[in-house]
Structures are given as C-alpha cells and as structure tokens.
C-alpha cells in the first residue's frame, strides 16, 4: 500500500544476468516530490535498477512496488504513469519532431486534442516549438535530449525516470537540460535520476544513493554525504614522501588516502595542517573544499572501473 507519500518502494532487489549479479540486494524508497539520484560508475547497476522500476525487466529477487503496485512485465498501469528519458536516444528518425511526439502521446490512449495541446506546450517548454516540423536527424545532441524530456512529460507522469540525461553533451547543452529539470522540480515533479556526474547530482538531487557493483554504498543528501564521509576541506600533496608528512602532522584530526603520486588529507579545517606543512620546505600543496567527487572516489576507490 502507498503510505507517507512513498511512490517507489524497493526491498532487497536482486537482478542477475547469467553469472553476473547486476543488482545485489538493494533497498530504497522514493518519496513524492523529491529528486532521488543514483550515482555510480559504468556497470554499477543503475540502468538495471530503473528498468525494473519501469516494468521492462523482470527481477530475480526482492520486491519492487511502484505507486503501490508490484512491478512486472505486464504492469501497464505503472508504465502509464511513468515518464522515461532513456540513456540511448530512441527518437524515431523516420518521423518529424511533431510526429514523434503525437504518435508517442497516442500510445497512452489520450484524446487527440489533449495530445496536440500537450505536444505544443511541451515543445515550447524545451524550446523546440519552432523546429516542430523538422526531422530528427537535423537536431543536435542536446536538442534530442530536450525532445526526449518533452516526450517523457506527455502523459504527465507521476514519476520521471532519467537515465544519464546529459551523458555525452557539451557544457551548454548540459546546463540547458539542468535548467529544464530544475524547473520541473520546482513544479513538484518526482524524479529518479541516474548519473555518473557529481555536478549533476549536486545540482539536482535532494537525496543520493551511491551505487557500486550492484550495491548501495551510502545514502543521503549530497551536502550531508560530503560532511560525513570526507569533511569540509581537502589538502592534496603531490610527489612527496608520505611517511614524513604524516609524522609531522601527528596529533591533528584528519583522514588520509594515498593514490599514485598524490596524498589526500580530508579534514574539517585545514589551517593547522597547512601551518605545519609550511615548515616543510618546497611542497606542492593544493587546498580546496571537499566535493561529492571525493566522497564518490573514497567509497568506490580511485582505481579504474574496467
């Protein structure tokens, strides 16, 4: 049953592809009006998770309830109330922008008049109204993404699912998408957002799941996660003998991590550290605020995910 405004409720979800466990017993809930981010590297299980929510992939264990209904392949009622921006562009290249939108709207059994009104309104919303009669091939990558957003909104979904909506876009196009999504958020649209961009997660998400190898490593608001996992500030020291530095900093409160040629010091306040290091001679030191990227890399490891 639906309670406390929980729209999506996932309990111990497992998904396997042959021998590979893509999702390994994750649990989380999405509440009405929030933007829930799933942050993780390639292969973390983000897309698999949302495909199960979308009722286009069966699970191998656990329960997934969407709008109080069990997710499953034949669950039309769930699909009818979701708006999906897929990772891979699936706009119909044989059709114009308007035809794409109108045919898609019809799939939700909406009256023709409603479809036409919403197509116009949504094309205006993503600033593609003037291009309505153009072919899909004439659009840039960013325009295609915007059109996918407009298309996903046609059925006025209860929840929007965005699977890496800005991957592969240039900065201008990315910011344009973020603006549109923030505007939807302010209208109270609930979102589930898969991303591998820290900035995207920080800009848009109220809550974040950090996912890695099919598991959820941490959950929380972006600023909370930063504060709890790495603190406020980071000092990066390059090309120096680590042991000597750590001895010199004895008694101060910080966490450290050594990766390649760099020593990372995570702390609440870096002033004391920097004062002591000042007496150390010529050091390459960088001091900066802690970011989500630090949290992410600390949790998932700074090695390559290949």
């Amino acid at each position: 049953m639906m309670n406390d405004g929980i729209l999506i409720d996932i309990e111990s979800l497992v998904k396997k592809y042959g021998n590979l466990t893509a999702v390994d017993g994750i649990s989380f809930a999405v509440r009405k009006g929030e933007c829930m981010g799933i942050l993780g590297p390639n292969g973390a299980g983000k897309t698999t998770t949302v495909k199960i929510i979308q009722c286009i992939s069966p699970s191998d264990g656990g329960t997934v309830s969407v709008f109080g209904l069990p997710a499953g392949l034949s669950q039309r009622a769930v699909k009818a109330q979701l708006g999906v921006v897929p990772q891979e562009n699936d706009l119909d290249p044989d059709l114009t922008i308007r035809e794409n939108m109108e045919l898609f709207g019809a799939l939700f059994d909406m009256p023709k008049k409603t479809v036409r009104e919403r197509v116009n309104a949504n094309l205006k919303f993503v600033e593609l109204y003037e291009r309505a009669n153009d072919k899909i091939v004439s659009l840039s990558g960013g325009m295609k993404r915007r059109l996918l957003v407009a298309r996903a909104l046609l059925n006025e979904p209860k929840v929007m699912i965005l699977d890496e909506p800005t991957t592969g876009l240039d900065p201008q196009a990315r910011h344009m998408i973020w603006q549109r999504l923030r505007s939807l958020k302010s209208k109270g649209v609930t979102m589930v957002l898969n991303t591998q961009y820290m900035e995207e997660a920080e800009q848009l998400c109220d809550r974040l799941l950090i996912m890695h190898k099919g598991r959820i490593l941490k959950e929380g608001a972006p600023d909370e996660l930063i504060k709890n996992e790495v603190g406020e500030e980071v000092v990066e020291i390059r090309n120096h003998e680590v042991k000597g530095i750590l001895e010199k900093l004895g008694g101060l409160e910080f966490m450290h991590e050594e990766v390649g040629d760099t020593l990372y010091l995570y702390c609440r306040e870096s002033r004391d550290i920097l004062t002591r290091l000042a007496g150390f001679g010529s050091l390459s030191v960088l001091r900066r605020p802690a970011t989500l990227e630090d949290v992410f890399l600390r949790l998932t490891g700074r090695g390559l995910n290949e």
Binding site: Q54, I56, L73, S74, R76, K79, A80, L82, V84, P86, E88, N89, D90, L91, D92, P93, D94, F104, L107, F108, D109, N155
Partner: peptide
Amino acid sequence: IEKVYNALIVTPLT
C-alpha cells in the same frame, strides 16, 4: 538501429 521497439515498450505497450 532506430530503437523503435525500445521506445514503444516503455509505454503501456507490451
């Protein structure tokens, strides 16, 4: 190539 099926099955279509 055109991913038409992918786009269709996300909607109430089976």
